[in-house]
Amino acid sequence: MNNPTHIEIAVMSDVTKIYNGGRYWVPALKNVSFRARKGEMVLILGPSGSGKTTFLTLLAGLQKPSRGDVYLFGKNINSCTAGELQTIRAKRIGFIFQSFYLIDSLNVLENVTLVMKFAGLHREVSKSRAISYLKRFGVEPFAKSSPRFLSQGEKQRVAVARALACEAPLIIADEPTGSLATGQGMEIVRFIHESVKSENRCAVITSHDERISRFADRVIRLRDGELYRP
């Protein structure tokens, strides 16, 4: 695979990831190649244990491949320091998790502004931007509330606001609909899709929910750590 071009946000080139399982070596991903571009939403489908999470964490620079290369915004993560990868995550990647992972001791607004603080944004800019994103997703009235008082759907909307508020070019979503009712789940995916299209971002979403595929520009299937075409 060639080196990434300027519109390519993330590239995996012949990536293998093997975990040390004590007595055994466990291959989680095998020779996977992948490109994610601006303006597209990629859905990674696969059952549990297929390697989806390993795929996402490599793409987020949270771990390095055993073999092959992962490029994030043109940088090979194999040659990046932990500090460089942290900066990439803070400034250029927005995360959405299945269990939302909001911080209960902070209020909704602070949950959103904290990420922008990591990205180095000024407090006032962070606050006004966070409020506008909370408004956009209909959760601005809860800005001063603790996330623990929100419904599941509201929590995930806040999580989406947190992921998008930094205006990160890459959105990584790990089973974002997994804890939500169908209607709420589709609404969240629609929010992500709108953001990808209107703001020219890239979203990589893992799920085992086939219904999301209607929003995706591309669907990639993983089974036993390998990409496959049905």
Partner: peptide
Amino acid sequence: RNEFAILKAIGSPPSF
């Protein structure tokens, strides 16, 4: 532990 792991994942600086 989980909260701090989240913060590390979403890009908190090492000193935070």
